[in-house]
């Protein structure tokens, strides 16, 4: 465990908690893509099935349980408790265009053709693109609440920090996982445009709004 990995995990945790608290405190999920949140719930579910088969550490197990728990809680808030505030009209990304190709790819390109490994690979590929419905929604409405941008920033930062972690692990441990690295690079690239807007607008106290 290096500092980049740890801060990456904490950044991921911060993102998840920020989103959950935003919805809970405002009693509203306006501007949040329920589809992205369902995809993230799928990501955590398919990746952390090894909770049932392998024990790594107390840290590992607790974080996995927290991520899964918060993810399902978020989906519950959006689609049940605060359903009336869910902006479904703007959440129109066709998720089958992500899930089907990602499912196919995880069967074709994986480390081992076994159920658990294919599901893990699926989760890695799906996570790389799971934010697209949310970004699509923002591009459609042309704006995002500031708290939503903080969520996106920490979510993007997490994978960027993992990239540095993988460079570190390659040099100091000789460890590398090509699937995770390539997907992680793709995932981070998808946030670049957003990072630019976050730094040039949100951090200067302006609301994130896109030109019409």
């Amino acid at each position: 465990m290096n500092i980049f990995r740890l801060t990456g995990d904490l950044s991921h945790l911060a993102a998840i908690i920020i989103l959950l608290l935003k919805i809970w405190k405002s009693r509203s999920c306006a501007g949040i893509s329920g589809k992205s949140q369902i995809l993230f719930a799928m990501v955590f579910t398919t990746r952390y099935l090894d909770l049932l088969t392998a024990y790594i550490s107390l840290y590992n197990t607790s974080m996995k349980i927290i991520y899964i728990g918060c993810s399902y809680a978020t989906v519950y808030l959006i689609y049940a408790k605060f359903k009336a505030t869910y902006d479904g009209n703007h959440d129109t990304f066709r998720v089958e265009f992500l899930v089907v190709p990602v499912g196919g790819l995880s069967f074709l390109v994986n480390h081992d053709f076994s159920p658990l490994e294919i599901l893990w690979t699926f989760s890695i590929y799906l996570e790389a693109v799971a934010i697209l419905p949310q970004l699509f929604m923002i591009s459609k409405t042309g704006e995002a609440e500031t708290i939503t941008t903080h969520y996106l920033f920490f979510l993007g930062l997490y994978r960027a920090l993992y990239l540095i972690n993988w460079v570190w692990r390659f040099y100091f441990e000789g460890f590398f996982d090509m699937i995770a690295i390539v997907a992680g690079v793709v995932q981070t690239i998808l946030y670049c445009d957003f990072f630019y807007l976050y730094v040039t607008k949100v951090l200067k106290g302006k609301k994130l709004s896109l030109p019409a």
Partner: peptide, 10 residues
């Protein structure tokens, strides 16, 4: 090679 159960990263 790092396969199947026991991924240490989240």
């Amino acid at each position: 090679e790092r396969v199947s159960s026991g991924k240490d990263e989240l």
